[in-house]
Design a protein around this nucleic acid. Structure first.
Length: 418
DNA sequence: TCTGGGGTCCTAGGACCC
DNA sequence: TCTGGGGTCCTAGGACCC
């Protein structure tokens, strides 16, 4: 049996943790650059604020109803997430952290699942302060469905599918578009073919689904019918591709600040590579204008270069990246976003060596990176960094309403006065 | 004025091999 | 008139997830 534990309105709940006066009030959290809504408290949902709503378009609604608005604070959410996951980890030897706010937990062999799930919820709420809901079932897809049902219908926040009647109840209640793995396109197609509920999908003609959706569809049918096809993944496999990209706070025309942004993104990618002990053999740089500004001339530039040998050295990656950037940068555009992708990722101890390496002192640089990571790990991100990342940060995000980093920065720790 | 960021898997088709 | 059988690798595009 799998439990799926999902935090309720996670980002909004995190913002409330250290500001309990916000309890009961509508809250929204905005995407990077304060662009659109990515999390809402129940009160905000009740006002009709949609997921993905564009911030400036709902300004009036926000003002009228005194909605509290936050810029996203990923340092906070990430830290709270790891605390939630650590607590959940005490409930089973096998847990898969599926996303920042969700975990699958193996409960095979556990007795009285209903009260055990209830206990997990209460412990997380007690220890961390984050509300959750729990769905339990024999496959991951059904656990997802049970969780969704619990969120809407279960007073105690828990639903266990342990009888055929309960499976039928949930699947008949669930819209087909809400099934895990059915997105916008397939959802539309299902409706056009008179499949409206998860139950109808579970009982649809196999060969017909197979023809349209291939093995993914067949797997989904099995999962909905209690045949588990998707295993618990306790240990995250290393990434095959790593991307760091950001929109700029304002539009940029000049090469200088854009190159600083790119250098900074490269540093992040290199850190992520080193954290998973791997190197990349390909580097892609992209940059583009704002496609929403219909009257602006548009440009999308991108270039990929091979790295031989594969590397995770920040200094080397930045050097390549800036050469690449020069070749795609064109004068005369209003740039909105730039990003870096590293791919063709290999384990750091399985690198194909090259005979004529331009760098003969790799071991020195590798030590340098170790030291940098150690210092930054202890003293905070970018305490030591490569100068081409710049200092003016003209490209930095708009984040006008960010809460303090209550749990990750000593300088911003909650202060209590009498 | 203002529209996020980061991933994975699968399939079809082309090019190539013996 | 007739033209085999069995593979692999790569890429682009489409779909999905949070």
């Amino acid at each position: 049996m799998f439990a799926l534990v999902d935090c309720n309105n996670f980002y909004a709940s995190c913002e409330r943790l250290f500001q309990p006066k916000l309890e009961g009030l509508p809250i929204v959290v905005l995407s990077n650059n304060d662009g659109c809504v990515i999390a809402r408290s129940n009160e905000a949902k009740a006002l009709g604020i949609k997921m993905g709503a564009i911030a400036f378009e709902i300004k009036e609604l926000i003002e009228t109803h005194q909605v509290r608005v936050f810029s996203s604070n990923y340092a906070l959410y990430g830290d709270i997430s790891s605390r939630v996951m650590a607590t959940l980890g005490t409930f089973s030897p096998r847990i898969e952290v599926y996303s920042i706010d969700e975990s699958f937990i193996d409960l095979t062999g556990f007795g009285n699942l209903e009260s055990y799930a209830q206990d997990m919820r209460e412990t997380v709420k007690q220890n961390i302060g984050i509300p959750t809901c729990v769905g339990v079932a024999s496959t991951k897809t059904l656990a997802k469905a049970a969780n969704k049902y619990a969120k809407k219908n279960a007073a105690n926040g828990v639903f266990v599918i342990d009888t055929e009647a309960k499976r039928e109840l949930v699947l008949k209640w669930m819209e087909v578009g809400d099934v895990w793995g059915i997105g916008r396109k397939l959802g539309k197609w299902m409706l056009a073919n008179n499949i409206t509920t998860a139950w109808e999908l579970a009982n649809a003609d196999k060969s017909w689904i197979g023809a349209k959706m291939g093995v993914i569809g067949l797997r989904m049918l099995k999962e909905l019918n209690e045949i588990a096809c998707i295993a618990l993944e306790e240990y995250p496999s290393s990434k095959k591709q790593i991307c760091t990209s950001r929109s700029f706070g304002t539009k940029l025309q000049e090469y200088g600040p854009i190159s600083e942004a790119v250098a900074t993104h490269v540093s992040r990618c290199a850190e992520k590579l080193r954290r998973q002990k791997s190197c990349a053999a390909q580097l892609t740089i992209f940059m583009h204008t704002n496609s929403f500004r219909a009257n602006d001339p548009q440009y999308y530039g991108s270039i990929s270069i091979a790295l031989t040998p594969a590397t995770n050295d920040t200094t080397e990656l930045i050097r390549y990246a800036l050469v690449a950037l020069k070749s795609v940068f064109k004068e005369g555009y209003n740039y909105k976003k730039a990003g870096v992708i590293v791919s063709e990722i290999v384990s750091e101890n399985q690198i194909q060596q090259v005979l004529f390496d331009s760098r003969t002192d790799r071991h020195k640089y590798s030590k340098l990176m170790d030291v940098m990571d150690q210092i930054n790990g202890k003293m905070g991100r970018d305490k030591v960094r490569i100068a081409s990342g710049g200092f003016a940060r003209k490209w930095k995000l708009r984040q006008e309403m960010k809460s303090p980093n209550f749990t990750t920065n000593m300088g911003e720790i909650l202060s209590v006065s009498n």
